[in-house]
Computed example of a mutant assay.
Amino acid sequence: MSYSRILKWISGIFELVLAIPIVGGAIVIGTGYSALGFMLILHAVTLILSLRNQEAIYGSVWGILTSLLAWIPIIGWVLHLIAAILLMISGSKKNKTLSLSAKPTLTTPNTPDSTDLFCCREYFLL
């Protein structure tokens, strides 16, 4: 398990705790809103590690958005809950390595060489 997946689970659990209506509000207000700053840094680190490992980043991006907008009472609760769900989903997925060097190919029927773009130009000219 990569560090980014571990951090997704940790930040997902933290977000879930902050999504508990009275408890989360007490933590955020009791820390003088510095809990949101800590979560912003945690999500940024998770985002950087996820980008480096070519993993899904939607949970971390949503977490950053949540950290910036969670000071709004009802909206903060909803955002924390959504962030927790997204982080745990992305943390549970296996690492799918994306190859950026792969050559895209066209797969059109009845063409002698489907990787040649010039033989298939009539399909693009509609």
Score class of each variant (00 low, 15 high):
Ile74His: 02
Met1Trp: 05
Leu18Val: 03
Ala44Ser: 15
Cys119Met: 12
Lys93Ile: 08
Ile74Glu: 03
Arg121Ala: 14
Leu36Asn: 01
Arg52Val: 11
Leu87Lys: 01
Leu42Phe: 08
Leu69Gln: 08
Leu98Gly: 04
Leu36Pro: 01
Lys93His: 05
Leu51Glu: 08
Ala19Lys: 04
Trp9Gly: 06
Leu100Asp: 10
Val45Thr: 08
Asp113Met: 04
Trp9Gln: 09
Gly63Glu: 01
Phe14Glu: 03
Ser34Ala: 14
Asn53Val: 04
Ile29Leu: 14
Lys93Ser: 09
Met88Pro: 04
Thr105Trp: 04
Ser11Ala: 15
Ala35Gly: 09
Pro112Glu: 11
Gly37Met: 13
Leu69Gly: 03
Arg5Gly: 12
Phe14Trp: 14
His80Met: 09
Leu117Ser: 11
Phe118Asn: 12
Leu65Ser: 07
Trp77Gln: 08
Arg121Gly: 05
Leu79Trp: 02
Leu51His: 06
Ile20Phe: 00
Phe14Ser: 13
Thr97Asn: 07
Ser101Pro: 02
Asp113Gly: 02
Thr107His: 13
Phe14Gln: 06
Arg52Phe: 10
Gly91Thr: 01
Glu122Tyr: 12
Leu68Gln: 04
Glu55Pro: 00
Ser101Met: 08
Ile57Phe: 05
Ala35Ser: 15
Leu126Thr: 09
Leu117Glu: 11
Arg121Lys: 14
Leu47Ala: 02
Leu16Lys: 07
Ser60Tyr: 05
Ala56Tyr: 02
Leu7Ala: 04
Met1Tyr: 10
Leu87Ile: 03
Asn110Ser: 14
Val23Gln: 11
Glu15Gln: 15
Ile41Tyr: 02
Gly63Pro: 00
Leu68Tyr: 05
Met1Leu: 12
Ala70His: 05
Gly30Asn: 10
Ala26Gln: 14
Ser11Phe: 02
Pro112Arg: 06
Leu100Ile: 01
Leu68Arg: 04
Trp62Leu: 15
Thr97Pro: 06
Leu65Met: 12
Thr105Leu: 13
Glu55Trp: 01
Leu36Met: 13
Gly37Trp: 15
Leu68Trp: 06
Phe38Trp: 12
Gln54Gly: 05
Trp62Ile: 13
His43Glu: 07
Trp9His: 10
Leu16Met: 15
Leu81Ile: 04
Ile20Ala: 02
Ile82His: 00
Tyr3Ser: 14
Ala70Asn: 05
Ile27Ser: 05
Thr115Arg: 14
Gly24Asp: 00
Leu117Phe: 12
Leu79Ala: 07
Thr108Tyr: 13
Lys94Ser: 13
Ala56Val: 07
Met39Phe: 13
Ile29Asn: 12
Gly32Lys: 07
Val23Ile: 15
Thr31Phe: 12
Val45Asn: 04
Ala35Lys: 04
Leu81Gln: 04
Ile72Gln: 08
Ile75Leu: 15
Trp9Asp: 05
Val28Met: 14
Leu81Gly: 11
Ser67Cys: 14
Glu122Met: 09
Asn110Trp: 00
Phe118Ala: 10
Ile82Asp: 00
Leu126Ile: 08
Val45Gly: 03
Gly91His: 06
Tyr58Thr: 11
Leu100Thr: 04
Ile85Leu: 13
Leu86Cys: 04
